[in-house]
Simulated scan of single mutants.
Amino acid sequence: MSTDAVLYDHPGPRAKVRNLVLTVVFGVGALALLWWVYSRFDEKGQWAGDLWKPFTESSTWTDYILPGLQHTLEAAAVAMVLSLAFGVIFAVGRLSDHWWVRWPAGAIVEFFRAVPLLLLMFFIFFGVPFLTEQPMSIFWAVVIGLTLYNGSVLAEAFRAGVRSVPKGQSEAAYAIGMRKTQVMTHVLIPQAARAMLPVIVSQLVVLVKDTALGYIISFSELLQLGVNNLSANFGNVVQAAIVAAVIYILVNSALTAFAGWLSRRTRRKGRAPRSPGAAVQQVAIEPGLGGGGGGAL
């Protein structure tokens, strides 16, 4: 039987009818909930044209929404790169054979996973100046907070992905003389990244949304400019929040779509080898990947 086969019991006639009934019931329930929300908003006059009119004016977008979106995307992009690097480095550190590397890496990851991100941003922005005697950049306070928290979560994801790779992969790599660093970078981490891609994408989506927490230190992102400042001038906080929510949905949907395309592309390039050591043997023929000794990190 093919290893790609998925175990799944196809529903029978009764199960199909039950699934259809449940789908209809939940669909009707969802429509009823949406209608209730719409009618309640309508009673309070929240669909009045005057409250939505500012979004038809270009100045609203150029002065509030687009600058906020730009700052959100800039902070998210930098934090994504740094979080992925942080995650890989500390995942490797937690997998090290040396306790003096493994224990500090584990302590750092567990600490920053446990501290709320809002407090991280707050402490970095207001606490670092006491140490450096220099004002802290709001942008970098947000980025560093996002990096420490999300990088710690990604470190655990990468570690789980590395441990999920069959042991035969690393054993075959050691058998042909690869060092542990080479095994990690050329064999285990690429496969772990493909295996954990859904988890990684989910955390990056969380990262994008977490940029909104920068409001605690007055970071001028989408929530601060596109909701707080905008509604303060036009008195339409509900409408501004709805528009901001739609923008967040579009951004995260685009990120998820890109991740899906990347997953399909990497799956085509990295088909599962027929034999346990085939992938390692293919890597080993590249120049400079061989080498004696089984040194450990």
Rank of each mutant, 00 (worst) to 15 (best):
L222I: 04
V115D: 03
S59T: 13
V78D: 06
H186E: 13
D42E: 12
G87K: 02
L197S: 00
Q134I: 12
A157N: 14
I217N: 00
R14N: 12
D42V: 06
N150Q: 04
D4I: 09
F158Y: 07
L22C: 08
I189M: 07
F158L: 06
A279P: 08
V24P: 05
F126I: 11
S218M: 08
R274Q: 12
G290F: 09
L131R: 08
P190T: 00
L289I: 08
V109T: 07
L207Y: 04
F125H: 08
I124T: 03
F55Q: 08
G291H: 02
V246W: 10
L51N: 07
L51C: 09
D4M: 10
G292F: 15
K209E: 07
S220C: 13
L131D: 10
H10V: 14
V201I: 12
V165T: 07
G235M: 07
L34Y: 06
V78I: 14
I242V: 12
A278E: 15
G127K: 03
M136Y: 05
V24I: 14
V81Y: 07
G177L: 03
M121K: 01
L118N: 09
F125N: 02
I176S: 01
G214C: 02
A155F: 01
S253Y: 12
E74Y: 15
N19Y: 10
V251K: 00
L131H: 08
T256L: 10
A48L: 12
M121C: 03
Q191D: 07
V183Y: 00
V162F: 01
A105L: 03
F41N: 15
V115Q: 02
Y174V: 11
R163F: 13
F219G: 01
L120K: 04
V115P: 00
P116W: 04
L262Y: 07
L148Y: 06
V237E: 13
P273W: 02
V81R: 08
N19S: 11
F234Y: 14
R18M: 13
A5N: 15
V206H: 14
H10N: 12
N236C: 05
R267P: 07
A75Y: 03
E110K: 04
G291K: 03
F112K: 00
A76W: 00
G27R: 06
R18V: 14
Y8M: 08
R271W: 09
A5Y: 15
V187N: 02
P129T: 06
S164Y: 05
A296Q: 14
G151L: 05
S202K: 08
P116D: 06
S39C: 12
A257S: 13
S83Q: 00
S164E: 04
W261C: 11
G291Y: 00
A114G: 11
T147Q: 02
V251E: 01
D63Y: 09
P116F: 06
G288Y: 02
V81L: 12
E43Y: 09
H186Q: 14
Q134A: 15
A107L: 15
Y174H: 11
